[in-house]
Design a protein around this nucleic acid. Structure first.
Length: 888
RNA sequence: GGGCGGUUAGCUCAGUUGGUUAGAGUGUAUGCCUCACAUGCAUAAGGUCACAGGUUCGACUCCUGUACCGCCCACCA
């Protein structure tokens, strides 16, 4: 064990050791209860960011904790093929080599992606290992590997057979850069300051015109109606009339529809059924013409000939120019509204009509709502339950087809011929596991496979069972499914959590997990999301290099407020680093001064019948710590566990118990037991191991030990030490005494000057006995030479005093200046305490308080009054003494 | 527009079903290189618990409202 804590010198070593020992691996064991987590699979394109750091640290802690608690823990890892994201990354790479996607055939392109995946796909896995994440690497999966692809195909087919997958021409979200459809969830709405254009639409055979307002004037080229509200009297005169659409000179009707808001704009709305979701519905209701004006790349098409080939935004400018020329622009206002963007490339989305595959969600959602309402699945913190339910109850069908190449190909073929009625009824749609040789309806052999792939989230939705071998009825599924808890951040409740629940219930007839733990998002120091574009991210790898993985892990768990976002900055990591350093040094101390031949192993048992007062005190606090840890673990309050252990280890065990122990060893007084110190330290190592696995292993291994690894030592058991309130008060008194002397020392003494002695008012036997018994501790820790008991309070009071519950402690002062200081200090204290006394008295004088407050509260208040009045009396006496002696 | 979260020490946060002198870490000040640790030890200063009402013997805690910050959802063109 090195003198200095140097994480870099051992972290990799112990990770490899765990791999070698295969502790991470779980085998089916019917006799042991499984505890299972499936990892939220990071994108293969990904590099580890702080969000992953937090997410995986939490999972690793849970897994390591429950392993110690005797569960058969299994953490299933893997990566996601991340369709659009990965395709974008590879396209960009190819572009940098001067090649475009179009210069490849589909299979050539896919080869490139696979090549890329082989080269870079394991990056994030390696990084997870540096973090200390000990997944069951023998179960690692990839959403595009063979088994998972089979599951995806199977799911699609079964949903289709159940009428839950259908193909329809519908208005969807189209990304003109990725050139694919997106689901509603994949569109991010951003508040944008744009313009609201008021355009005059001339009426047919009439000199009047109707003014409509729009934020996307170029879409007017595809207008096929103008709509007003049926109750809007302003437009009643024009009912049944027609409008001549400017620029296109098309005759379009004025229609009435109650979705139109009379208050908005002019109360008249242009209707573009092909390029607005609302207008699409209006168009269907009123049987309007649907005119598509866009090419898939966002340029205008030849349905709007004069603008053919123009980019949509350029077209917007041109349309405005042209309308201005005809004097048809009424006004242009600045306007704030939200605009949809592609969540992968941030391009503005276009509503676009196309033929896509959809999943019918209502029937899948019903049972998924039910299991959450009945609390078979619980959310932590519970408020996310409401978010989930609200979304589920308003769920819409899910567009699952994507017009990209990287992903699971849709297992559908189309018959080109459709030679008989049967085939035409089916639209020539053939859904098959494998490529059919001929059309099953008409026998034609000219078949074409659907070009599209499935939404990435379609395969993610199956993750909890596809990774365990589904659709085979494997032993793994029987044993490990349902999994225990899903750990993720709020951003993907809809994308992923909700869909896993629906798919799990439909295909496994069982929930995929019973707990959903939603942790916060990692923000920068001033509360902004960490993002590449802002450049405010903190690279976990850099932190690991600089501070160690343990410091990273401990810091982020300890400072993550329960269920809220955590604000992170580089300087925060010293929390974890300092803590690790403290642990390191405590270990060095124990090894140098405490471990001896008498202690054969750090994994020792202690005899609870043979314990000193001090031992029982510190062990009773350990009991409390263990109990709190177990409780907080159940409700995922990992930050509280971390902080509780921190406080116990540092401020009770190190600050007090080890200090007592040192003195005890030196003086040979046996007020403490070395075994106790070792026992507690080992318990702390065990409790801390899930949080800081590397350093705890390094320390454990450096002691004589009985297990192969700290990872497999059991969770510390409670000793059920009985340490009552009276005893606690004794300890508190001892601490108060030492702190009180230290306080006076820091006010009145310079540097290391030592007190000759302190005078203790000798009135109370409990206090006297205690002080006598532990005088060696007091003398050393408070740096005094002698402790004198004086019968007369006067002589005690003639010095710097502090008043305790059992009487005053006095430290003789000779210096006139110091007496002045003391006098002022006492005056201040007097004021504070008398205020307190008055407050308590008034409470006790209140008849309502005495009659209505619970008995114990009244008693407590009376006790308080005694206590503070006593204290006040001593302070006043002391003040008088000083006044008399020094003629104040 | 709807919903959710937040507002407590300079900063980041605790504060369990209402009942101590409202806590911790960090930062600041002062003194210490005390034989585990200066990544440390000791001591101290620092708070009208966002604001306004209400309930109560008693409110940081419960209720109502207001303000500000943040997030999510939504078919205002």
């Amino acid at each position: 064990m090195e003198t200095r804590y140097n994480p870099a010198s051992f972290e990799t070593k112990w990770y490899n050791f765990w791999l070698l020992k295969r502790y991470f691996h779980s085998e089916i064991d019917p006799g042991t209860k499984p505890y299972v987590i499936v990892i939220p699979p990071p994108n293969v394109t990904g590099v580890l960011h702080m969000g992953h750091g937090l997410n995986n640290t939490i999972q690793d802690i849970l897994i390591r904790m429950y392993r110690k608690l005797g569960f058969n823990t299994c953490w299933v890892p893997g990566t996601d093929h991340a369709g659009i994201a990965t395709q974008n990354v590879v396209e960009k790479k190819l572009l940098s080599e001067g090649k475009t996607r179009e210069s490849f055939t589909r299979s050539e392109f896919l080869n490139e992606v696979w090549k890329w995946k082989e080269e870079h796909g394991s990056t994030i896995i390696k990084q997870l290992k540096r973090l200390g994440a000990l997944c069951d690497w023998e179960r690692e999966r990839f959403t595009m590997d063979e088994g998972l692809s089979r599951a995806v195909k199977e799911v699609f087919i079964r949903l289709f057979e159940n009428g839950l997958v259908y193909r329809d021409e519908y208005i969807i979200n189209w990304c003109v850069r990725c050139k694919t459809a997106l689901s509603d969830e994949e569109v991010e709405y951003k508040e944008t300051t744009g313009k609201l254009y008021y355009i005059k639409y001339p009426l047919e055979n009439n000199n009047n015109y109707i003014i409509v307002a729009t934020t996307r004037p170029e879409t007017m080229l595809g207008d096929t109606a103008v709509a007003v509200h049926p109750d809007d009297n302003r437009y009643k005169q024009y009912w049944g009339k027609y409008i001549i659409l400017p620029l296109m000179r098309r005759k379009i009707p004025l229609i009435c529809d109650s979705v139109v808001l009379m208050e908005f704009g002019t109360g008249a709305v242009k209707v573009t059924p092909s390029h607005d979701p609302n207008d699409f519905e209006i168009g269907k209701r009123h049987n309007l013409q649907f005119i598509n004006i866009l090419n898939p790349d966002g340029t205008l098409n030849n349905n709007v000939a004069p603008y053919n080939g123009l980019d949509r935004f350029r077209a917007r400018e041109r349309v405005i120019e042209d309308l201005k020329k005809e004097n048809l622009i009424e006004k242009i206002e600045s306007y704030k509204h939200s605009v949809g963007h592609c969540y992968r490339c941030d391009t503005v989305i276009e509503p676009y009509i196309s033929k896509q595959w959809f999943v019918k969600m209502r029937p899948l959602a019903e049972p998924a709502i039910d299991v959450v309402k009945k609390e078979r699945i619980k959310f932590y913190p519970s408020r996310w339950r409401g978010v989930y339910l609200n979304w589920m109850e308003n769920i819409k069908d899910w567009c699952i087809s994507r017009q990209i190449w990287w992903g699971h190909r849709i297992p559908v073929w189309y018959c080109k011929k459709m030679e008989n009625e049967d085939c035409r009824i089916k639209n020539g749609v053939i859904v098959r596991r494998d490529q059919p040789k001929e059309c099953p309806y008409c026998g034609a052999t000219e078949l074409v496979q659907d070009a599209d792939v499935l939404d990435t989230w379609f395969s993610s939705a199956l993750w909890p069972f596809s990774t365990l071998g589904w659709p085979e009825e494997t032993e793994e599924l029987k044993y490990y499914y349902p999994t225990t808890v899903l750990v993720t951040d709020p951003g993907i409740i809809f994308f992923w959590v909700a869909r896993m629940i629906m798919m799990g219930l439909f295909f496994m007839k069982e929930i995929p997990f019973s707990d959903v733990y939603i942790h916060g998002t990692v923000m920068d120091a001033i509360g902004r999301k960490m993002s590449k574009s802002l450049g405010n991210g903190i690279d976990p790898l850099e932190v690991i290099d600089k501070y160690g993985a343990d410091a990273l892990r401990f810091t982020i768990t300890a400072i993550t407020p329960t269920g809220q976002n955590l604000l992170l900055s580089m300087d925060k990591f010293s929390i974890g680093q300092n803590f690790a350093n403290k642990l390191w040094n405590a270990a060095r101390f124990l090894k140098m001064k405490v471990i001896s031949d008498r202690i054969q192993t750090i994994d020792l048992k202690i005899n609870t019948d043979d314990l000193s007062f001090m031992d029982r005190w510190i062990l009773s606090l350990l009991d409390k710590l263990i109990e709190d840890t177990e409780q907080n673990l159940r409700i995922y309050k990992l930050n509280e566990i971390a902080m509780d252990i921190y406080a116990y280890f540092w401020h009770e065990y190190c600050d007090w118990y080890l200090e007592f122990l040192k003195i005890d060893i030196r003086e040979n007084t046996s007020l403490t037991k070395r075994e106790t110190a070792i026992y507690i330290f080992n318990s702390l190592l065990s409790l801390l191991h899930p949080f800081i696995p590397f350093i705890t292993e390094e320390i454990y291994q450096s002691f004589p030990h009985s297990y192969d690894s700290i990872m497999i030592t059991p969770f510390p058991a409670k000793l059920s030490i009985n340490f009552d309130k009276e005893e606690s008060e004794k300890i508190e008194y001892l601490k108060e005494l030492i702190n009180g002397i230290r306080n006076i020392r820091s006010i009145f003494l310079a540097g290391r000057e030592e007190y000759v002695g302190i005078n203790v008012e000798d009135t109370e036997t409990t206090a006297r006995d205690l002080i006598k018994e532990y005088s060696v501790f007091i003398k050393t820790l408070a740096k005094v030479k002698e402790i004198n008991f004086l019968k007369s309070p006067e002589s005690v009071l003639r010095s710097a005093i502090f008043v305790t519950k059992y009487g005053a402690i006095g430290i003789p002062l000779s210096d006139k200046i110091k007496i002045d200081k003391q006098y002022k200090k006492l005056l201040k204290e007097k004021e504070i305490i008398s205020r307190r006394v008055i407050k308590i008295q008034s409470r006790l004088n209140n008849k309502d308080f005495l009659s209505k407050a619970p008995f114990e509260i009244c008693e407590q208040t009376k006790e308080d009054l005694d206590k503070f009045q006593g204290k006040l009396k001593r302070i006043e006496e002391s003040l008088k003494m000083i006044e008399r002696i020094y003629n104040k």
